[in-house]
């Protein structure tokens, strides 16, 4: 367990920073480059890095496989739900003006935040689940096969 000591220490330091940067990109996406896609990938990278350095078992204790799948679906629901909520308020699908009829640009702001949050959750979930799907398969091929 003492292998790769530098790698382990540096990743421990980095993972927190990566997550924080992911959240910054997520929620500051409307004023600077960023948004759900990028933030989702950055957050997923934090988990994938943890998985690579500490092993799949460790990361799946924090972020189990079933939760990853559910999160990928929940993100889509957040996106679609934002649109449907607008429909219930009497506006068109995804018309964020519905959330603040008196001041439509505020509505746009809140709407895009909610939608990007959905995108971020889905992208993070999907990227991590892609990693799990490939990393989690029982190894069937040896190096000689390549």
């Amino acid at each position: 367990m003492r292998h790769h000591l530098i790698l382990r220490t540096v990743s421990k330091l980095l993972i927190g920073a990566i997550l924080l940067f992911g959240l910054y990109v997520q929620f500051h996406g409307d004023f600077s480059p960023g948004g759900g896609f990028q933030a989702g990938v950055i957050v997923a990278v934090a988990f994938i890095l943890h998985g690579i350095v500490f092993g799949l078992g460790m990361v799946q204790r924090v972020f189990p496989r079933w939760l990853v799948h559910k999160l990928a679906a929940v993100g889509v629901l957040v996106y679609a739900g934002t649109g449907v909520l607008g429909m219930f308020l009497g506006y068109d699908f995804l018309d964020y003006g519905a959330f603040s009829p008196d001041h439509p640009s505020h509505g746009q702001h809140w709407g895009i935040l909610a939608v990007e949050l959905g995108v971020g959750i889905t992208v993070a979930g999907v990227m991590v689940s892609v990693y799990y799907a490939f990393a989690g398969r029982p190894p069937q091929m040896s190096d000689e096969d390549w």
Binding site: F37, V123, V126, V130, A133, F134, R137, Q140, M141
Partner: peptide
């Protein structure tokens, strides 16, 4: 994003084909 999804799916299929 579509490209990433396609690649992931193609690689998953390749893993199954290999098995």
């Amino acid at each position: 994003v579509v490209g990433v999804a396609t690649t992931a799916l193609a690689l998953a299929l390749i893993v199954r084909i290999r098995e």
